[in-house]
């Protein structure tokens, strides 16, 4: 599905963010990208949809090499890649519905988007997605009137609105409290499973990554130093990725994992 070959990125300042990364992700696979700050996680996912231009290497999505595309062809291909951001990156002064519909911008001509005259089918799908993420009654509120967890749900709906073939998720829970983080991760994994959607999730919370991801890739200083299922992530592997530390105090076993699916509904009620 997604094949990254020998991807490198050196910024103008001379900092090497990625060196020779090769990675393959299959359909429906959830990959957690872990590593210390500055390891190149954010750069890696931004090199895929070219919000950051890679210095060299290939990025194959299906049978298209994204790294070689010209401007307009790149815009065309970006529609296939949904992106979810750390601080939601919603357009704060637009309504929830407008934010969700902005996922269709790559599909509609300028005048339609400008006059907010989206196709009936798009509007139906937008409501469907808002219903799926539990925000139907908030459709006409302004995005900045929502809580963090709700905003991230809008972010998810916007990405899905693109009918993407791949999700890029950049630290989806970094600005959320532990409970909301889990709800968002659960929603993400459920949605990916429903649609067979592959996703690359940057995440710095290792226990969270271990409990929700089926495969983990560890980056250190721009190189892949670990690639395997969460069960293989030993203390040695963690030390390889992050450097020496007493890892036992942050293992998932210490974490309270008692909350069931009921909690999500209860929390949704509270938030509403």
């Amino acid at each position: 599905m997604l094949k990254i070959k020998n991807l490198s990125k050196t910024y103008k300042t001379g900092d090497t963010a990625l060196s020779d990364v090769t990675l393959e992700i299959n359909k429906g696979q959830l990959v957690g990208l872990i590593g210390p700050s500055g390891a190149g996680k954010s750069t890696l996912i931004r090199c895929i949809n070219r919000l950051v231009e890679p210095t060299s290497g290939e990025v194959w999505l299906g049978d298209v090499d994204l790294a070689q595309l010209g401007r307009s062809e790149l815009r065309h291909q970006r529609r296939r890649i949904g992106m979810i951001f750390q601080e939601y990156a919603l357009v704060e002064r637009l309504t929830v519905m407008e934010n969700v519909l902005s996922g269709r911008l790559g599909y509609v001509p300028f005048w339609r988007s400008w006059l907010r005259r989206f196709e009936a089918e798009d509007i139906r799908r937008a409501y469907e997605l808002l219903d799926r993420v539990g925000l139907l009654q908030h459709a006409d509120k302004r995005a900045d009137a929502l809580s963090g967890g709700q905003r991230q749900r809008v972010g998810i709906a916007r990405a899905l609105m693109q009918t993407p073939d791949l999700l890029l998720v950049d630290e989806p829970t970094a600005s959320l409290d532990p409970k909301t983080s889990r709800q968002i991760m659960r929603l993400l994994t459920e949605i990916c499973a429903e649609r067979g959607l592959p996703a690359i999730v940057n995440i710095h919370d290792v226990p969270l990554a271990q409990s929700f991801m089926e495969r983990l890739v560890g980056l250190r200083a721009g190189t892949v130093v670990f690639d395997g299922p969460p069960t293989d992530l030993s203390e040695d592997a963690l030390t390889e990725i992050y450097g020496a530390e007493d890892w036992n105090t942050m293992r998932p076993g210490d974490d309270d994992e008692s909350e069931g699916p009921l909690d999500v509904e209860r929390a949704a009620e509270v938030m509403a």
């Binding site: 815009r75 529609r79 601080e87 990156a89 357009v91 704060e92 911008l105 400008w114």
Partner: peptide
């Protein structure tokens, strides 16, 4: 303007005029 909002609109595959009207204009309107 907040660059992240503009980045998010760009990432949807929006054209330059759409990035302007969705990413930038709402931010500078007030």
């Amino acid at each position: 303007t907040d660059a992240r909002q503009i980045e998010a609109i760009t990432a949807t595959g929006a054209g330059p005029a759409q990035v302007l009207t969705y990413g930038i204009v709402p931010q500078i309107l007030p």
